[in-house]
Simulated scan of single mutants.
Amino acid sequence: MATVTSPARSRATTYPGWFFLPAAIIYGVLFLAPTFASFYFSLTRWTLFNSTFIGLDNFAQFFREPFLIKGLLNTVIYAVISSGLKVILGLLLAVLLTSQIAARGYLRSVVFFPVLVSTVGVGITFTVLMHPTQGMINEGLAALGIKGPGWLVDPNLALISVALVDVWKGVGLATVIYIAGIVAIPKDYYEAARIDGSTSFQSFLYVTLPLCRPATVTVITLSFIGGLRTFDLIWAMTRGGPGFSSDTIASVIYKQYQAGFYGLSTAGNVVLFVLIAILVVPLTMLLNRKEGHE
């Protein structure tokens, strides 16, 4: 027997779909169109007024340039260091700030405050603090009889130094995410663990850590993507120097734009887009799959 769908019911199921239209238009204009345009212009030698199709020559030149490959490698190193430390420190701070300590509300504000500060402002401030001879950090170490390193002038330390500043600025957001995850854990689990004789460390290891996995997935994903896309902090502190030792792919792309190599820099943007997709999508799928099996 055929089922007759009333006009009112049909309108009820199709009408809400129109609410997606404004968002779809904005998404298409501001994201999809520029993305496809970038893919096209990466295959051209272009200026503001004309373009010449040259195929994959920009990509071939990109992978022939040693400093571009260095920037690509630095990007991955930076993302791994910054995201890894944010996960570890964010979790430890969240455990501390959800315990019964005095002034924990104030301490939460203090931890989150750097997230609200301008990244360029943080970069300029730490550039002064990390000055090799007149910076407050090395002067403090000198007062303890320790010779401070050249944080931003040593090619072996510059990238790591900026990554540590990034961790200082961003760990507050990771902490807030972890606090939300810990607070959402039912107290019954901790009471059961305490009845079974678990220590505080065992409760953390077998209750807090597994049940905070959704927060961990969120922090890893956001921090890793932010690390791969980093530009403003690097540019404010080192300009990619000394030499190319702290260049990331985003700062290299910016330098190519400054030099007028628009097609090459657009190809770099495409490479960065593909790099983020290759690294982040499988990582997110892996983390979510493990979460679903537990």
Rank of each mutant, 00 (worst) to 15 (best):
G260R: 12
L283C: 13
G260T: 11
F273W: 06
N269R: 02
F261Q: 15
T284F: 15
A259N: 14
Q258S: 15
I278E: 01
V270H: 07
I278K: 11
L283W: 10
A259E: 12
L283E: 12
P282N: 00
K255F: 03
V281E: 09
A259Y: 11
L275F: 10
P282H: 06
V280S: 11
Y262W: 11
L264H: 00
V274A: 02
L275Y: 11
L275P: 02
A259F: 14
V281L: 09
G263I: 12
T284G: 12
L279G: 08
G260E: 08
V280G: 05
L283H: 08
Y257R: 12
N269S: 13
L272Q: 09
Y262C: 11
A259Q: 15
Q258G: 12
A259H: 12
A277H: 05
V280E: 11
G263L: 13
L272P: 05
Y257K: 09
Y262T: 13
G268D: 02
A259M: 10
S265V: 02
F261N: 15
V281K: 01
G263E: 10
F273Q: 08
V274I: 13
A259L: 15
G260Q: 05
Y262L: 15
L283M: 14
L264D: 06
N269A: 14
P282M: 01
Y262E: 12
V271L: 00
L275T: 01
L264N: 06
T266C: 08
L272M: 08
A277N: 13
A259P: 12
G268M: 07
L283A: 12
A259S: 15
V274P: 10
L279E: 03
V281R: 06
G263T: 09
A267W: 01
P282W: 04
I276F: 05
V281P: 05
K255T: 07
K255N: 11
T266L: 02
F273V: 02
K255V: 06
V280F: 03
F273Y: 10
L283P: 11
L264I: 04
A277C: 14
F261A: 15
Q258A: 14
V281Y: 08
Q256F: 02
L275C: 07
K255A: 02
Y257H: 01
V280R: 10
A277Q: 10
V270N: 06
F261P: 06
G260N: 06
L279N: 05
V274N: 09
